[in-house]
Design a protein around this nucleic acid. Sequence first.
DNA 1: CAGCATCCATGACGATACTG
DNA 2: CAGTATCGTCATGGATGCTG
Lengths: 139, 139
Amino acid sequence: MQDGTFDAPSYLKGTRPAPDVLRGDVFARDCPTRQLLDRVGDKWSVLILRLLGEAPMRFSLLKRRIAGISQKMLSQTLRSLERDGLLTRHAEATVPITVTYSITPLGHELLAALRAMIDWAETRMPAVAQAQQIYDART
Amino acid sequence: MQDGTFDAPSYLKGTRPAPDVLRGDVFARDCPTRQLLDRVGDKWSVLILRLLGEAPMRFSLLKRRIAGISQKMLSQTLRSLERDGLLTRHAEATVPITVTYSITPLGHELLAALRAMIDWAETRMPAVAQAQQIYDART
DNA sequence: CAGCATCCATGACGATACTG
DNA sequence: CAGTATCGTCATGGATGCTG
């Protein structure tokens, strides 16, 4: 039993306290925060979530409200968010077809969790911009 | 006056309420949230901020605690965060040189604003993973 | 120890054209 | 209307080698 049944390091089996130094591997790779940022840290996800947080919306309306997004990226990002369970797609078999996207409870939860970050960005990004100017002005 | 003095659309001049539809341009480009995510949505920034939120730390310790990061990315990300005013660099002229990084009040603020997101990720990413499996299993 | 310089692979993203 | 398919570009980030 001293060696354990598999090859996991001892601090992963709880026989030693995670040593703070060198638990990096787990921290960096499994870190749920990174996984989340991998998905919503892209160019459009949060923007789309915020819009759908206001109200369900059709593809074309999203396209018009998010100036600068391409059909490809909108479509791709929507599919990704749907896959993640953050929004749902509802297609009506009209001619032409009508597709509406809505945020899910899980998506709403995430949006709520992002609220503080969004607020911070809106009030404090000027301070960041100022810090940059000072940094860039240094000889 | 009916046509206005420049070629800006009327809702930008306040002669009509921003119509919800079509205010996309401003929303998408100036959005502080996007600016923030452009800076901390990368692979390592939040991780570094979290570590420095615990305690000031030297380059080599950061390198060891974040398994998988290259010197290049660590150095590059640290410089970017320093430029943004989120952390400070202190170099001591020992031989060899000793460099310590600390989080700033602004960085601490941001970290606090990210707390809800981090917590959400830690508790709810399993739900996201499950949603993905269901999505991928659909024929 | 704490970097910088360089090269290279990958993938994110945009533009364009086409479709049920 | 709501997409898919294809192509090209550019930025991100890893690997390697060198330095004060």
